[in-house]
Design a protein around this nucleic acid. Structure first.
Length: 1050
RNA sequence: GCCGAGGUGGCGGAAUGGCAGACGCGCAGGUCUCAAAAACCUGUGAGCCUUAAAGCUCGUGGAGGUUCGACUCCUCUCCUCGGCACCA
């Protein structure tokens, strides 16, 4: 709002450089000449400059987008001027929930909305001076594009990488659809009262998860969904990070997302219980399925004193073994747990759980250990079951305390810290004491606190406890046995002083009831640090982590389990129960299913596998894969029908499920009535391969020729073509520079890498490189009013008004000048006037050549020129555009100062350069009478234009032609080179310090900077320096060549 | 809790061991003007001192350390932002 008002105010001032006329003119010329359309068949010196394509929102481009796109554009222009054949395409990520939601809001089909938004986007990009290769654009919702997205799905299915599975999803009962984790927010974030499924407002509680759009409480729902086996590629996705030029923080984010942890799967045999149902007992051990657990600490297996399984696990695998006297309670617990949402489960730190009455055999200790169900064990990590080692895991420890389970230490700590449990019965002031000692509290345990302190502080702790003890004795237990009793003024620390302690208690009239000798809740150690194994059979004396490798191989040797890695990365959920996306190209036949038939037979698959060239695919067993009844569509595309009512319904199916004309089809196998899949695929699949398509857009059909197998085996269908030309793709990919937002660090960038690897493995992509983006630059996000710019926050800034008032060059420069590209600049338009001022000054400078005006200090200018070329070149290479622009500003200031009578001139109106450009639609050649002579000084001006061209493409093109008299575009001109000799100053200023403090400066000739004696003597002559030198004796003289002098004086 | 990024004038930011605050915004004074705007010139980290010139002290979240010299390197600590989070 305020910006607009300021704009109007600013509009009243004199404008001498007519930006709109100049900018529109050159945009038209560029368009006509196809300046930015490289010959895709000539890949010599190619540079594929990719910018993350936007989704075409109805509101159009905002300045945050421009910040990003200009950053990419500047680099592309820079590379073009450095002689590269730059391919810089643009496209639109037009499918997806954003566009769909907007269309629902205004009540039209998304494809109509798109008809308006695409031209709007295109105009805005042109207006800002982004001249992409408009002959090669991609729109993901075009049928020519999404047919290939569907093709990729089919290929993944055929290669065993797409499968169906029941998964837990977020379900909004009001929007009647699955929503992504990002759309699940707290009521405060949604700005709405939370409502239950009937629409009744409910009381807001902590940890509530609601839908960001409507505020209804999100439910967990199990649906059968299509998944991609990205986890099969986890190791390659991880290893690939090693060889690519990406920001470290992005690599770290991907590494963490993949979240590899190495350890072992251990097998615990279920034991026949004393009260099993008779028929189960009689069948003996053999029918009891063992419980497999994942652990990163197999070294602690001797300390596993019980097991815990997730409620989901218990429901699926254990219920059948549980005896009748327990079954009701266990079932009840499971049901309650499953009803809780994830966040409520997490929020509640108090451990809950229930005994199953079942036992398993600890393979190491050969002891039977009890099995519990508890919801602190997650069903979707590891196997859904754990071995509990309470002595060395805080969560297991808390559980053991609550259920009074044995705690068995197997690692002697060699470490410096303990975790000690402190009950709440201490006086105020205790926490101050904790702080004073630099101990710290964890709030982990529901019944008290964990206190972390150095092991050497144990005695101190006892003193502190005494000091703040309210009443009664404290008991110190270690590993389950009583070690000490603490009274207010006395400590009994040896076990067999127990009687004395009792006597003492009576003495100070603590009643018997208060003395609970077996209460173990008071003081106990648990640690998960490094140490030496004890009480662990043949492993005694081994060290963790030093002997981890031996432990793993022993585990395998003993048959206790096998080594195994776990990943945080989950398989990619592809299904969306929405309308605006590519229909998943699969057909389901219930007849075939009933016969257990499907496309995916081992025979079919083996046959398919033969066609996979370059196969690194590891096909694993498909036990968990409900493939029966499913067939891939052979006739692509499956067109997204143009339907009226595409709103989601809420039955767990997409809107297409209401359209029999869409889903009714014939089974390709048995020809009976079959049903097409009605879900569409995730938008991230569209954007996972768009960069592969760009170079091949509009390449004639014969060029995207049939893929032939190296062994001359035809692929599955006869007329198979590819969405890209193999030749062009081989030449232009991988992408040379990918420029985009850091917010895509994990999802998009991970998916694109995955799809690239798969396509390579399947032989459709002939590239040496296993990575699509060997170089990626992550810029930051533009902030406005403390939040990132987004429609939902209502803080977007439209660039159009700024372009109109100040010009595209001004806005581009302003955005690039705000801060470093990888920062998070806060958009404020207070400085944009200043940037416009700079454009005016610039325009004036170009009109002050030395054939008309007296120029002084030409030598200095020569040096400044070369310094500026060096600086700007290096800064652009590092995406430090703000300092590059600052250097250009300095250069302009130098040029201005060098004009002897500039003070007089500057206040004058610039020479009238008004040139006729348009008469109707026709462009007219403009007069070039103002053209400067190529004097030395005018070459300085030429350098200025060149250096600024990537940032301000219009004004530089204007002066390049109209003032500097060139015939071809500045954007094809050669980037200036600097002379490393001329970068050096003739005289340099050397600061002189006394004891590290600046006391004076001296001027020396550059040639003499290596003469230490000379410089030091000169420094001593300096009056100010001398004063300080004579105040003491000089202990040391330091001279850093060409940098500074420092005297140590005392 | 874990991982990551960061903390420098009134503001955006510059300086990766060597003159802290480049460049720009803003602000103040001045020139021009009947006046204003625009434009241009000068000044602009804080404090002390001086008629003035000059000079001095402090200063990059805080506390220590390494160094002739630290915004920069090391240790500890506080705060802000972003991501992940009962991951066995």
């Amino acid at each position: 709002m305020t910006e607009i008002r300021k704009l109007h105010k600013a509009g009243s001032r004199r404008i001498s450089y007519n930006h709109s006329e100049v900018e529109k003119y050159w945009q038209k010329v560029w368009d006509k000449e196809g300046l930015y359309t490289p010959d895709i068949h000539k890949s010599e010196n190619k540079f594929y400059n990719l910018w993350m394509f936007p989704y075409p929102s109805a509101e159009g481009v905002h300045v945050g987008t421009i910040f990003s796109s200009t950053g990419s554009d500047v680099y592309g222009r820079f590379m073009r001027m450095n002689g590269y054949s730059v391919f810089q395409p643009i496209g639109f990520d037009s499918f997806g929930i954003h566009s769909e939601n907007y269309a629902i809001k205004i009540g039209e089909n998304p494809r109509f909305t798109l008809g308006r938004t695409l031209p709007h986007f295109k105009n805005q990009f042109k207006m800002i001076g982004h001249e992409y290769d408009w002959t090669k654009t991609v729109t993901t919702s075009d049928i020519d594009y999404y047919r290939w997205t569907q093709w990729i799905f089919v290929e993944l299915f055929k290669s065993g990488l797409a499968y169906r599975k029941y998964v837990k999803v977020n379900w909004c009962p009001s929007c009647k659809t699955v929503i992504s984790d990002e759309q699940v927010v707290t009521p405060a974030q949604a700005g709405k009262d939370p409502r239950d499924e009937n629409g009744e407002i409910v009381k807001e509680e902590e940890g509530m998860r609601v839908c960001e759009r409507c505020g209804f409480l999100v439910q967990d729902k199990e649906l059968e969904q299509w998944m991609f086996r990205i986890t099969d590629y986890a190791d390659r996705l991880l290893d690939g990070l090693g060889g690519i030029d990406w920001p470290e923080k992005i690599k770290t984010a991907q590494k963490n997302w993949i979240g590899k942890s190495t350890g072992a799967l251990l097998t615990f045999n279920l034991q026949p219980t004393t009260h099993p149902p008779a028929h189960k007992a009689s069948e003996g051990q053999s029918i009891l399925q063992p419980i497999t657990v994942f652990t990163t600490r197999p070294d602690t297996v001797f300390g596993a004193t019980f097991m815990v399984v997730a409620p989901e696990y218990a429901q699926k695998y254990l219920l059948k073994y549980i005896s009748e006297d327990k079954i009701n309670d266990v079932t009840k617990y499971i049901n309650i747990s499953l009803k809780k949402t994830k966040d409520i489960r997490l929020l509640n730190k108090e451990k809950t759980g229930i005994e199953t009455g079942l036992f398993a055999l600890n393979p190491a200790t050969k002891k039977d250990i009890p099995i519990y169900v508890a919801d602190y064990v997650l069903s979707d990590y590891g196997t859904g079951a754990i071995m509990a080692v309470p002595a060395h895991d805080e969560r297991d420890f808390a559980f053991a305390k609550k259920f009074n389970l044995p705690i068995h230490k197997v690692i002697d700590q060699t470490l410096e810290t303990h975790t000690v449990l402190i009950k709440n019965s201490l006086e105020d002031g205790f926490s101050d004491e904790i702080q004073k000692n630099n101990w710290y509290l964890t709030d982990y345990f529901d019944w008290g606190y964990g206190l972390v302190l150095p092991a050497s502080d144990e005695h101190k702790l006892i003193e502190v406890i005494q000091k703040f003890l309210k009443s009664g004795p404290w008991y110190v237990h270690t590993d389950g046995s009583l070690k000490a009793v603490i009274f207010k003024d006395k400590v009994f620390s040896i076990e067999n002083e127990n009687e004395q302690a009792k006597d003492y208690a009576r003495e100070i009239s603590v009643t018997e009831e208060q003395i609970d000798w077996d209460n173990k809740d008071n003081y106990m150690f648990c640690h998960n640090k490094n140490g030496v194994l004890v009480d662990s059979g043949s492993w005694n004396g081994l060290k963790y982590p030093e002997d981890y490798e031996k432990i793993l191989s022993d585990v395998e040797k003993n048959g206790w389990g096998e080594r195994k890695s776990q990943y945080h990365l989950r398989d990619w959920l592809i299904s969306r129960q929405r309308y605006w996306g590519p229909p998943i190209p699969m057909v389901f036949c219930s007849n075939c299913k009933s016969k257990g038939k499907s496309w995916f037979t081992s025979e079919k698959f083996d046959n398919y596998k033969k066609h996979i060239r370059n196969s690194k695919l590891e096909i694993r067993n498909f036990d968990d894969w409900s493939s029966s009844g499913w067939y891939p569509e052979e006739n692509l595309p499956v067109e997204l029908p143009d339907i009226q009512n595409y709103q989601p319904e809420g039955n767990g199916r997409g809107p297409l499920a209401n359209h029999p004309e869409f889903y009714k089809t014939k089974c390709p196998e048995c020809a009976s009535v079959a049903r097409r899949e009605t879900d569409v695929s995730d938008t991230f699949l569209d954007s996972a391969w768009y960069f592969l398509r760009y170079p091949s857009v509009r390449i004639e059909d014969q060029e995207s020729r049939r893929v032939e197998d190296k062994n001359n085996l035809p692929l599955t269908t006869d007329n198979l073509q590819l969405p890209w030309s193999p030749e062009v793709t081989r030449e232009w990919l991988p992408v040379d520079l990918y420029f985009g937002g850091a917010e895509h660090a994990v999802l998009h960038l991970m998916y694109a890498r995955f799809v690239w690897k798969v396509l390579r493995d399947l032989g459709y992509l002939d590239s040496q490189n296993d990575e699509p983006f060997p170089r990626f630059f992550a810029h930051g996000l533009m902030i406005k009013d403390g939040a990132k710019m987004s429609k939902s926050k209502g803080n977007v800034v439209n660039p159009d008004d700024y372009v109109e008032k100040y010009g595209a060059d001004t806005l581009r420069l302003y955005l690039m000048f705000m801060g470093p590209m990888d920062g998070y600049p806060d958009f404020r338009d207070t400085g944009i006037e200043g940037m416009r001022r700079f454009i005016e000054k610039l325009y004036q400078v170009f009109q002050m050549s030395d054939d008309k005006y007296q120029i002084t200090n030409k030598n200095k200018l020569e040096i400044k020129q070369h310094q500026t070329i060096k600086k700007v070149t290096e800064e652009i290479q590092q995406f430090k555009y703000n300092t590059a622009i600052a250097a250009i500003m300095e250069y302009v200031n130098s040029l201005r100062e060098s004009i002897s009578n500039s003070k007089f001139l500057i206040s004058k109106q610039p020479k009238n350069l008004t040139i006729k450009r348009f008469s109707g639609d026709k462009m007219e050649e403009s007069p070039t009478s103002q053209v400067l002579q190529p004097t030395t000084y005018n070459l300085y001006l030429q350098t200025l234009a060149l250096l600024l061209a990537p940032f301000a493409p219009h004004i530089t093109e204007e002066v390049w032609h109209k003032i500097l008299g060139h015939k071809s575009s500045i954007h094809l001109a050669k980037w200036p080179k600097y002379d490393s000799e001329l970068v050096k100053e003739e005289t340099i200023t050397i600061p002189v310090q006394i004891n590290g403090k600046l006391r004076g400066t001296i001027q020396i000739e550059a040639g003499k900077s290596n003469d230490k004696e000379y410089v030091l003597s000169l420094a001593k002559e300096n009056e100010k320096v001398n004063k300080w030198l004579s105040a003491g004796t000089v202990k040391k003289e330091i001279y850093i060549e060409g940098r500074l002098v420092n005297y140590v004086v005392s």
